[in-house]
């Protein structure tokens, strides 16, 4: 998963991954998504391939790229744990704030 995360840390590569989420694309179609020169696009595609995020097949003279689900699912699971952690913490902080508010209201009443 380390490689997948590194690969996804780059905004250009995220753009390629997001494009491929809609279906397979040729190298040329993918290159058209990015404002950089072809060799740069090829490098990004190689990083994605080495991270297992995309696979490529030859279709006549074209190279067709598609997404592989497994590394993304792993990333998603990893992120899910963090989201759950912060969700829990924020819920607990809300509870703590409510507790403070209740106590202050109570104090004001009892000092009247």
């Amino acid at each position: 998963m380390e490689n997948a995360l590194r690969a996804l840390a780059d905004p250009n590569r995220r753009t390629l991954v997001e494009s491929l989420a809609h279906g397979s694309m040729t190298a040329g179609q993918l290159a058209a998504q990015l404002p950089i020169a072809r060799p740069g696009v090829s490098r990004h595609l190689r990083v994605l391939r080495e991270a297992g995020l995309v696979e490529v097949r030859a279709d006549a003279q074209r190279r067709v790229y598609s997404l592989r689900a497994e590394p993304l699912a792993e990333v998603d699971e990893w992120l899910g744990r963090y989201r759950a952690l912060w969700e829990r913490r924020l819920d607990a902080l809300h509870t703590e704030i409510e507790r403070g508010t209740r106590n202050r209201t109570h104090e004001r009443r009892s000092t009247r």
């Binding site: 380390e2 995360l5 590194r6 690969a7 996804l8 840390a9 991954v17 997001e18 989420a21 997404l67 689900a69 993304l72 699912a73 990333v75 998603d76 990893w78 992120l79 899910g80 963090y82 989201r83 912060w86």
Partner: peptide, 29 residues
């Protein structure tokens, strides 16, 4: 606002706390 940053070699991990990727992963599965 709570910003969690990490440095050096695991920078990419945090970069992926992006909601679109949950949808992406779900769509591909």
């Amino acid at each position: 606002h709570l910003d969690g940053t990490n440095t050096v070699d695991v920078e990419a991990r945090w970069a992926e706390l992006v909601p679109p990727y949950q949808e992406l992963a779900a769509a591909i599965e």
